[in-house]
Structure formats: C-alpha cells, structure tokens
Amino acid sequence: MQIFVKTLTGKTITLEVEPSDTIENVKAKIQDKEGIPPDQQRSIFAGKQLEDGRTLSDYNIQKESTLHLVLR
C-alpha cells in the first residue's frame, strides 16, 4: 500500500509499505529516499509519536494515510 510522509519543509514523500511493516522499517525506507538517519526521525500520526517496534497496523495506518516527519 502507499502512504505519504510530509516533512516540515512541506515536501511529501510517497512510500510503498505493508500494514505489517514496523515503524523502524518505514524510517529505513525514508532514509533510502531522503538520506535522513532513522535516529533523527520522529514520525507523528494523528497527533501521536510512533514507536519503532510497533507496526503500521498497530496505529491503524491505512493506505494513503499521511505521516508527519519531524527531525530531532
């Protein structure tokens, strides 16, 4: 499925993911596309910070959902 990741600069990245993917996985995909190390990424969805060990389905993130990426 496709999800979108919006950065603070307003750029939107499209990722191909599975509901079973962990947040860690997703951060690795963002690193592949953007070169941002996962330890600098904070992902926010529906106002909640997403934890690395959880999966997209844990957070009820579905296709075409938009995550927000904040850098630390």
Rank of each mutant, 00 (worst) to 15 (best):
M1H: 03
I3C: 03
I3Y: 01
I3E: 00
F4Q: 03
F4I: 03
F4H: 07
F4P: 00
F4M: 04
V5S: 00
K6F: 08
K6S: 05
T7C: 09
T7D: 05
L8Q: 12
T9E: 11
T9A: 11
G10T: 02
K11W: 09
T12N: 03
T12A: 03
T12M: 12
I13S: 00
T14N: 05
T14M: 12
T14P: 06
T14W: 06
L15A: 01
L15D: 00
E16G: 05
E16H: 10
E16Y: 13
E16W: 14
V17T: 01
E18C: 10
E18M: 14
E18S: 14
P19C: 07
P19D: 06
P19M: 09
P19S: 09
S20L: 08
S20W: 14
S20P: 03
D21A: 06
T22N: 02
T22E: 01
I23E: 03
E24C: 06
E24N: 08
E24F: 14
E24I: 09
N25H: 11
N25V: 14
V26W: 02
K27G: 03
K27L: 14
A28G: 07
A28F: 12
A28H: 12
A28E: 09
I30D: 01
I30F: 06
Q31W: 15
Q31A: 14
D32Y: 10
D32H: 10
D32S: 11
K33D: 07
K33M: 13
K33L: 14
E34F: 14
E34I: 15
G35H: 07
G35E: 04
I36K: 06
I36D: 06
I36C: 07
P37G: 09
P37S: 11
P37A: 11
P38L: 15
P38A: 14
D39V: 08
D39R: 10
Q40M: 12
Q40V: 11
Q40G: 10
Q41N: 08
R42V: 15
I44G: 04
I44N: 05
I44T: 07
I44R: 04
F45C: 08
F45K: 02
A46Y: 15
A46V: 06
A46D: 13
G47I: 04
G47S: 05
K48S: 09
K48W: 09
E51P: 02
E51K: 07
D52C: 07
D52E: 08
D52F: 03
G53C: 07
R54C: 10
T55K: 10
L56N: 00
S57K: 12
S57F: 10
D58V: 03
Y59I: 02
I61V: 08
I61K: 01
Q62F: 08
Q62P: 07
Q62L: 10
Q62K: 11
Q62A: 09
K63A: 15
K63N: 15
S65N: 08
T66G: 02
T66I: 13
T66H: 14
T66S: 04
L67E: 00
L67R: 00
L69F: 05
L69I: 09
V70D: 04
L71H: 09
